[in-house]
C-alpha cells in the first residue's frame, strides 16, 4: 500500500519544505518514503512542486501520473493537478491564491484560505503548514503529532523559535476543515 502526495505552488511558498516534512514524519514513523522535487531550471516566483510517497513496502516509481492527494497552493497548480487526482482522492486548495472553485465531484475537495489564516497567525510564510494541516485532516496518512515531531527535530536551529507558530498553523488548517465538514 502506498499514498502519493503532490504539493505544488509558486517557488517560495514552502512547497518543497512541506513535502520534506511529510517525508521526515513518515520515516520517523517507520514507513518507507520518497521525496522528489521537480528540479528544472526554476526561480523564485516560478512554479515548484514535489511528490512525496509514503508506503509500507519498497517504493517503486518516485513519480506517478495519478496521485492520491494534491495540495494546490496556486491557480496553475490547481489547473494542472485537479484532473490527475485518483477518484476518491483528496484535493486541498489554497483559496487565497485561486480564483475558481474545483470542478471534480469524485474527490474530496478541501478549500482553505491559507494566506489569510497564516497572516492572522503572524506570517504568510506559515501558509504551507496551514494547508498541510488541512491535508492530514482529510487524508490521515500520518497523525498531526508526527508532523509536529518532525518539525521539532528537523527544523533548522535558527528557526526553532518559530515552532509554536508552525504548530498553531498546522492545527488551524486541520480545524478549519473540521468546521467546514460539519
Amino acid at each position: 500500500m502506498q499514498t502519493e502526495i503532490v504539493i505544488a505552488g509558486f517557488g517560495g511558498q514552502g512547497v518543497l519544505f512541506a513535502g520534506q516534512l511529510l517525508a521526515y514524519a513518515a520515516m520517523d514513523s517507520g514507513m518507507e518514503t520518497t521525496w522528489i522535487p521537480s528540479y528544472g531550471p526554476e526561480m523564485r516566483g516560478g512554479t515548484a512542486n514535489c511528490t512525496v510517497i509514503v508506503a509500507d513496502e519498497e517504493i517503486g516509481a518516485p513519480v506517478v501520473r495519478n496521485p492520491q492527494a494534491v495540495i494546490a497552493m496556486n491557480r496553475p497548480s490547481l489547473d494542472k493537478y485537479e484532473p490527475l487526482i485518483k477518484p476518491g482522492g483528496v484535493l486541498v486548495v489554497n483559496s487565497s491564491m485561486v480564483d475558481r472553485t474545483p470542478e471534480r465531484d469524485d474527490i474530496i475537495v478541501v478549500t482553505i484560505p491559507g494566506n489569510e489564516i497564516a497572516e492572522e497567525l503572524g506570517s504568510r510564510r506559515l501558509t504551507n503548514m496551514v494547508l498541510l494541516g488541512g491535508l492530514l485532516k482529510a487524508l490521515p496518512v500520518l497523525p498531526l503529532e508526527a508532523i509536529e515531531k518532525a518539525l521539532a527535530e528537523h527544523l533548522p536551529e535558527r528557526h526553532k523559535k518559530l515552532l509554536p507558530q508552525n504548530y498553531q498553523a498546522l492545527r488551524a488548517g486541520a480545524n478549519y476543515e473540521q468546521e467546514a465538514f460539519v
Binding site: M27, T33, T34, I36, P37, P62
Partner: peptide, 8 residues
C-alpha cells in the same frame, strides 16, 4: 532523479 530525491 536518484541524485535529487530524498529517501531514508
Amino acid at each position: 532523479s536518484i541524485g535529487q530525491m530524498m529517501e531514508p
